[in-house]
Design a protein around this nucleic acid. Structure first.
Lengths: 149, 149
DNA sequence: CTGATATAGTTCAATATTGAACTACATAGA
DNA sequence: TCTATGTAGTTCAATATTGAACTATATCAG
């Protein structure tokens, strides 16, 4: 990894913010141009698809996605209306609700993935050296670990 | 820089998204707890403060902040109402508007900075090794350069 | 100069997002 | 058991954000 003169963590922060804004903007544009749902929907569908039995408790999903509870309620409402997710009551805790991926939801996620993958590849992965990518991944993990308190 | 087994740029992407969401959330909470305006306001004030004559054209500021034009119009409207910014007509181009930082705006930014700096420091800078921070800064620059086409 | 096209910024209506109640159920301690 | 307190999720009202018109000015080709 090359040293860049005088570059510190303080310099990295504003670049972090701009890179995030510009990248998510570009990716949303591509999804939208392909008449596909947003990144937010993708994230929810993918989180559910990876989960045991393809379902998660509302609060678990909210935490995984870093979303407020009311936002998640609304999001799942939309996904449910679109038939991509269905709610089921938790038998263990009668207050609890599961959001479960439907077949249609899995199909939609699979349809989105090629477009999303191509965007990640072209706009993100290809632009970084392997060393940069690894340093970022390791760094992000540390940042996330630091916030779980 | 340590190698982490099997870590690739593809792994870095979802971590990037989550780290951004969690960090901005945490920072907004601190600003809000200190009864200070949002990160968005800070960004606008700081962009103006650095600019020649402490002012920028609306479109220039929108581009620098990665914001839609209508969003920027609204944001500057709020900042103006709060007395932190004032609009002036461009003499060269009568369609053009400058957003100019007021003294009150500079004072507010200065008041926000200690809280913001402390958050960046504790939640971001301190958690990264110098090598990680440099790799990130360099990587973000490349990502941003790749998007300007 | 004139008409055609492009650019700067705003407005407006639709949609997204947030936080503060609120409802229902669960858990712990007397 | 009974009360108190905590947790899961939703609702509602307030605020933020977006994209599609729209207004005004600029630029360019003839």
């Amino acid at each position: 990894m090359d040293m860049i003169a005088g570059m510190t963590a303080k310099d990295a922060w504003p670049l972090f913010l701009r890179a995030h804004a510009a990248l998510t903007d570009a990716i949303e544009s591509r999804l939208s141009a392909a008449e596909l749902p947003s990144l937010l929907w993708y994230d929810a569908l993918w989180a559910l698809e990876r989960a045991p039995d393809r379902r998660l408790r509302m609060s678990g999903l909210a935490q995984a996605m870093v979303l407020s509870r009311s936002h998640l309620t609304h999001l799942i409402g939309q996904l449910e209306k679109a038939g991509l997710v269905r709610r089921t009551q938790s038998p263990e805790d009668r207050r609890g609700t599961y959001a479960a991926l439907t077949e249609k939801g899995a199909t939609m996620r699979a349809r989105m993935w090629p477009v999303y993958r191509k965007a990640i590849d072209e706009l993100f992965a290809r632009r970084l050296t392997p060393a940069q990518a690894m340093a970022m991944a390791a760094g992000f993990k540390r940042l996330l670990a630091g916030l779980r308190d």
